[in-house]
């Protein structure tokens, strides 16, 4: 069952065409992450779903209902803002219950639902505090609590974790994942952080410059990126791209493809060997990062971008040494002149 249908949605700000003919379907209960570089239109798309931006053309449908002309308050949605948007003049309890207050719910129900949400997020002891007396993580929880109290059809998140420090971000990410399991509500989540996208999403929508580049499950996008943009955007460290005519590259005939202009291989899909004829690529080690669990080599093979290799564990190969790389054949990606992935092996 579809929860949200986007049908040829366009958005223009004056002469600037920021979203181009977007058509998507989100299933009920699904966790969808919109991801892309800043300025790609993902936040605008979310704000249109929320009703905060008018839709320039196309149909926005919730279930069976066309909602283009509905006010935000009529759409039965809740949204967590990047800035949290807590009401500074209300304490936590009123912040949580404000939507119920507006709907004139009785005190008992308000009390019940507020404390339920506070319980889920561990806010019970903070109900009397005002937002300015809360830490970043606590504010984040209140913003989520405010959405939970609503029990909406759809949850919207607009980069909710980007104002938190690294440790809290991981903690809250897990919290959001648990929340989705617990509530089973449709969630649409915008982020520019690909780790958040990979860990949280049932499906990821990768956007770039107002277009949808690819839609799929995280592992699908990781294993079978449709084009250079998606291939380069997801994964860390980034996928290596080598031009088909790079002199350092010597692929066996079986791995090449006549139309391939660019070959892509992820750093973790490479083995290090001696710089001999068996190697697919030869270069010298420019920089080594030893993380303990992994070792990352930045290899100079004559191109502008270093070639990055990640090997598990501690590898003692030293700086300046010449080494060879062997690509795992199944994980080699081939892209044609348009940057599209060539699917047949």
């Amino acid at each position: 069952m579809t929860a949200i249908t986007l049908n040829s949605i366009n958005k223009s700000f004056g002469p600037v065409h920021v979203l181009k003919d977007i058509s998507l379907e989100f299933n009920k209960g699904e966790f969808v992450v919109l991801v892309g570089p800043s300025g790609c239109g993902k936040s605008t798309l979310l704000r249109m779903i929320a009703g905060l931006e008018p839709v320039s053309s196309g149909d926005l449908i919730f279930g069976e209902t066309r909602v283009n002309d509905l006010e935000p308050r009529e759409r039965d949605i809740a949204m967590v803002f990047q800035s949290y948007a807590l009401y500074p003049h209300m304490n936590v309890e009123r912040n949580l219950g404000f939507s119920l207050e507006l709907r004139k719910r009785d005190a008992a129900e308000k009390q019940k639902r507020t404390s339920h949400a506070a319980g889920i997020l561990g806010l019970d002891k903070l109900l009397d505090r005002f937002p300015k007396a809360l830490s970043g993580g606590q504010r984040q929880r209140v913003a989520m609590g405010r959405a939970i109290v609503r029990d909406p059809q759809i949850f919207l998140f607009d980069e909710p974790l980007s104002n938190l420090d690294a440790a809290l971000r991981i903690e809250m990410r897990i919290e959001i994942a648990k929340l989705h399991q617990r509530l089973g509500t449709t969630m649409v989540y915008v982020t520019h952080d690909q780790v958040e996208a990979m860990t949280l999403a049932d499906r990821i929508v990768v956007m770039n410059a107002g277009n949808v580049e690819q839609v799929g499950t995280p592992l699908d996008l990781y294993s079978n990126p449709a084009n250079l943009f998606v291939a380069g955007f997801l994964g860390s460290p980034k996928m290596n791209f080598v031009s088909h005519d790079d002199p350092a590259l010597s692929l066996p005939k079986a791995l090449t493809h006549p139309k391939a202009k660019t070959y892509g291989i992820r750093p973790e899909h490479i083995q290090v060997t001696a710089p001999d004829d068996n190697a697919h690529l030869i270069g010298t080690i420019d920089v080594v990062e030893r993380l303990g669990s992994d070792t990352i080599f930045y290899i100079n093979h004559g191109a502008k971008q270093p070639f990055v290799v990640r090997v598990p564990g501690i590898d003692r190969t030293a700086l300046g040494e010449k080494i060879g790389c062997i690509f795992q054949p199944n994980d080699l990606h081939r892209f044609n002149a348009d940057g599209q992935s060539i699917s047949e092996k």
């Binding site: 929320a50 009703g51 905060l52 006010e71 935000p72 308050r73 949605i77 809740a78 949204m79 803002f81 948007a85 009401y87 404000f98 939507s99 507006l102 709907r103 405010r146 609503r150």
Partner: peptide, 9 residues
Amino acid sequence: EAAMIDGCT
């Protein structure tokens, strides 16, 4: 905007 999503005109 948060208030409008929460139910305000």
